[in-house]
Amino acid sequence: MYIDVLVIHKEYRRSMITPQQIRGARAMLGLTQKQLADASGVSEMSVKNIERGSTPDPRVSTMLAMKKSLESAGVEFIPENGGGPGVRLRKVES
């Protein structure tokens, strides 16, 4: 059980996105906070609070739901790799 918790925590930390990445992804896609909330199955207030940074430790399920929705809509999240975390539109294969 302890190992499972460590694996889940490691996966979460690796897939963590920042409030700035969420705002940026939403802006690139032209989504409102309400649209992201609806697509993610979370409350609009959760999106607002997370983007503002006023939720210091948001639920893992909320963050993963928003990340999945934004990725499904066409963005890629770039992890911290020395240049800071980022976000970009996924390249469309032609």
Rank of each mutant, 00 (worst) to 15 (best):
Y2Q: 14
I3C: 05
H9G: 02
K10E: 15
K10C: 15
K10L: 12
E11Y: 01
E11N: 13
Y12W: 10
Y12T: 03
R13F: 07
R13S: 09
R13K: 12
R13A: 14
S15Q: 08
I17K: 00
I17D: 09
T18E: 00
T18S: 10
Q21P: 06
G24M: 10
G24Y: 00
A25I: 08
A25G: 10
R26I: 02
A27H: 02
M28Y: 10
M28E: 08
L31W: 11
T32W: 04
Q33P: 03
Q33I: 01
K34P: 04
Q35A: 14
L36H: 04
A39G: 09
S40F: 08
G41P: 08
E44A: 11
E44M: 15
E44L: 06
M45W: 15
V47L: 01
V47S: 02
K48Q: 12
I50G: 02
I50L: 02
E51T: 02
R52C: 15
G53V: 13
T55M: 07
P56F: 01
D57Y: 04
D57N: 09
S61T: 14
M63L: 06
K67E: 05
K68F: 06
S69K: 00
S69W: 03
E71H: 13
S72V: 04
A73E: 04
A73T: 00
G74R: 01
F77G: 03
P79S: 14
E80H: 12
E80T: 14
E80M: 07
G82P: 03
G84R: 02
G84A: 01
P85S: 15
G86A: 05
R88W: 07
L89W: 12
K91L: 05
V92L: 15
V92C: 09
S94E: 14
S94P: 14
